[in-house]
Simulated scan of single mutants.
Amino acid sequence: MNVHRTGRTTVAVAAAVVLSFTSAGLASGASADVSRDHGEDEITVGIKYDQPGIGLKTPDGTYTGFDVDVATYIAKELGHEPGDIVWKEAKSADRETLLQRGDVDFIAASYSINDKRAEKVDFAGPYLLAHQDVLIRADDDSIKQPSDLNNKKLCSVTGSTSAQNVKDKIAPDAQLQEYGGYSECLTGLENGVIDAVTTDDSILAGYASQAEFKDKFKLGGFKMSNENYGIGVQKGSDLKAKINTALEKMVADGSWDAAVKKNFGPAGYQNEPAPKIGVIVQ
């Protein structure tokens, strides 16, 4: 602030700052945060930008996916129209930091609830129960159970633990293949270079539901782990209770089922029923 301004100007600026902070920072129910400059009706939501069917930023600048639909519904219940939402990319490694710094109001980004994360942030939900699974070619009848992955080329992304978990616990003779991204794994699967891709079934279904992959792949349905997706909020934020109420309403009015079918249906995804709020399946 310029110390040479008149007292009247200084008071006016201070009042404007207080008014802006009160209306924008507190209206959403989030913790007070001076680092984010909201418009009066804006709410900032973290999502994935690169997971088709989950959270995807398209070339024309729009956002699609199950998490986007869930987040849009929640924002509406919090008093924000779709045009009020400021979408922000929430990469897996950045999610806790984004919430702790107050860069976002909440995060919906295939965010599995676990004890380590819950030490740093709070979770509403869960709103989806996913499982580790495999995606295989639609005409492949050689992989009918997890142990059939022995001696098969199994792909996941570099740094992921999914494929290693299969090798360590289920199919020790699986041949691990690490690619830079799941889209590369799917290209390899399509071309016969690899035999299966593994990660959360919701993520696999999202990719397989894309038009270019129609009828080419199928999910194994193996349910090799439980992944309880939650909505991340700042520790101690009263948004947790409000979001839980919104999620319950989304299930009750049929919007949750509609979002699942729209985003995952083309892959034949056999989703679990909507989970109960606060119930974590181990």
Rank of each mutant, 00 (worst) to 15 (best):
K152R: 15
A130R: 00
I243S: 09
A108Y: 11
K262Y: 00
K169F: 05
V70D: 03
D148S: 14
H38P: 00
L26N: 09
E248K: 15
K235R: 15
A130K: 09
L19M: 14
G55W: 00
S160Y: 05
Y179R: 04
D60M: 01
Y182G: 04
P59T: 09
I231N: 00
G102C: 02
V193D: 14
P266N: 01
V193N: 14
S147R: 14
G65A: 04
A274L: 03
P52V: 08
L78D: 04
A163E: 03
R101W: 01
D94Q: 15
L56M: 14
G180H: 01
A267H: 07
K261T: 10
A259F: 10
S142T: 15
I43F: 03
L189N: 05
S110F: 07
D122H: 10
K91D: 11
V233M: 08
Y179G: 06
N271F: 03
S31A: 12
F264L: 13
L19Y: 08
V260D: 03
Y179C: 07
P126M: 07
I54P: 05
N228L: 11
R137W: 01
S202N: 14
V251T: 10
L186Q: 09
A130M: 08
L26F: 10
C155S: 07
Q132H: 13
K214W: 01
S31H: 10
N165A: 06
L247F: 12
I277Y: 05
D201H: 03
D84G: 01
G206Q: 08
D69C: 02
K48M: 10
K240Y: 01
K153Q: 06
P52G: 06
F213A: 05
G25E: 12
D105W: 03
E227I: 03
L219Y: 06
R101S: 05
G102I: 07
L247Y: 00
D253C: 08
D122E: 09
G61N: 04
V34S: 12
T97F: 06
T158N: 06
G55Q: 11
S202K: 02
R8F: 06
G230Q: 05
Q175L: 15
S160L: 09
W87G: 09
T9F: 05
M1T: 07
D238E: 08
A174R: 04
R137G: 03
Q132M: 14
V251R: 04
E227R: 13
Y182F: 14
V279E: 09
H4V: 13
V45I: 15
G265C: 04
K218D: 00
K167I: 06
R137M: 02
Q282M: 14
L129H: 02
T6G: 15
I74R: 04
D173I: 02
F217R: 04
I85F: 07
L154V: 12
T6S: 15
D195W: 07
A108E: 08
L204G: 09
I280P: 10
Y127D: 06
D115N: 04
D94S: 12
A259I: 06
